[in-house]
Simulated assay, not measured.
Amino acid sequence: MELNLAPQMPDQTVSEGEGGGYYTWSISAVPFLGQAKLAAGKLVLQPLGFALPHYADFKKIGFVLQGCCVVGVISPDSTTEKVVKVTKGDAIPVELGAVSWWYNDGDSDVVVVFLGETSDSNTAGPFNYYFLAGALGMLGGFSPDFLARGFGISVSESKTLFKTQNATVITKLKAKLNISDLVNNNPYRNEMVFNLKNALPSVNVKDGGSLVSATAENFPLLSRVNLSGNLVKLESGAMLTPGYTADSSYEIGYVASGSARIQIVGLNGQLALDDRVEAGHVFVLPKFFVGSLIADTEGIEFVSTVTSSEPKLLRLAGVESVWKALSPSVLQASLNLSTEDTDIFKDKIVETTAIIPPKKH
């Protein structure tokens, strides 16, 4: 079966209004998302924009690409609301079934991209949200007598309790929320948020770029969602060497800025994708396929989610290459090389890293 891995911009507007918008990638535009049970969404919150409390049938990582906002989360095994302020560079995991709300208390727009896995979703494709309030609120679907009984209120009260908020996904508040104590005096940030921009890179190459990874090892919350996150920056002309996930996990990425040429090779050594990715594109690396990028003139920065909290990512080039691990005689026989060419190849592997800077002219 031929796979369509072409990078895509969001093609569906779920909600758009004065408070902001929410946009997704449909499986009609990106069929492989449905096959791989992946999804992506983009939240834009204007000042005083408030994404109503909701839960979802998927797990995800939210990457803050612009601005800062306040997030409230109630995990499925807790009745405590944990409130944190997130800013550009932050990654915040959201567990399956967790209730969350998102609020822009600043003066400029906020952009958050969600990349996640939907194997537990009711339907394949985009994220499915279940709202606690608003025109799409779950409780608003119950009859007044059920609500009256459940909440200990009168039937007449129940008729208006869940009907006064007319917004669907996002609303613009008339005044700022009174949550300064929750934001400024809470102990939850280190537990809930990982800043990819300030973390120590696992790969950092002069004139080449850097790679920062958040896994269960350095961010324990990820073990609860069984996902991990990456931030990759490539300078002009730099290359991310060919690599693959060796643990049957998928990688879904979003380009925050810049552009690059991307190639993905699949079963039987067939080139599955040779294209360009640019700002706003989502792209997917299927499990066991090998992918690589070479940045264009302006370089590239992208975030990605891998569907494992402790992913096994192997490189086919660079100092961590499996070629380096092979004994010289096996390497020589595999590639049908002379002894001299085998030695040269082994030496060259040692000289390169996972990120290769551009050649100097």
Rank of each mutant, 00 (worst) to 15 (best):
V84M: 06
V84Q: 07
V84Y: 11
K85W: 05
V86L: 07
V86I: 15
T87H: 02
T87I: 04
G89L: 06
G89W: 11
D90W: 03
D90R: 04
A91R: 02
I92S: 00
I92H: 02
P93A: 10
V94P: 01
E95N: 10
E95V: 04
E95I: 04
L96Q: 07
L96M: 11
L96Y: 15
G97K: 12
G97V: 01
A98K: 05
V99P: 00
V99F: 10
V99T: 15
S100R: 14
S100I: 02
W101C: 02
W101N: 02
W102Q: 14
W102P: 01
W102E: 14
W102K: 13
W102C: 12
N104Y: 06
N104L: 05
N104P: 09
N104S: 07
D105W: 04
D105A: 15
G106T: 03
D107H: 07
D107N: 12
D107V: 10
S108P: 00
D109H: 04
D109C: 03
D109Y: 04
V110I: 03
V110M: 01
V110S: 00
V110N: 02
V110G: 03
V112P: 09
V112T: 12
V112E: 13
V113A: 11
V113F: 15
F114H: 12
F114I: 07
F114A: 15
F114W: 00
L115S: 05
G116Y: 10
G116Q: 10
G116K: 08
G116I: 09
E117L: 01
E117M: 01
S119A: 11
D120A: 15
D120V: 09
N122F: 08
N122I: 05
N122M: 09
N122H: 08
N122G: 15
N122K: 08
T123D: 14
G125K: 07
P126D: 05
P126G: 03
F127G: 10
F127N: 06
F127R: 02
N128G: 11
N128A: 12
Y130G: 07
Y130F: 14
Y130H: 14
F131G: 05
L132F: 12
L132N: 08
L132E: 04
A133L: 13
A133E: 09
A133M: 10
G134K: 10
G134V: 06
G134H: 12
A135R: 15
A135L: 12
L136K: 15
L136R: 15
L136H: 14
L136V: 09
G137D: 02
G137C: 01
M138N: 04
L139Y: 14
L139D: 03
L139E: 08
G141S: 01
G141I: 00
F142D: 08
S143F: 00
S143V: 00
S143K: 09
P144T: 06
D145A: 13
F146T: 11
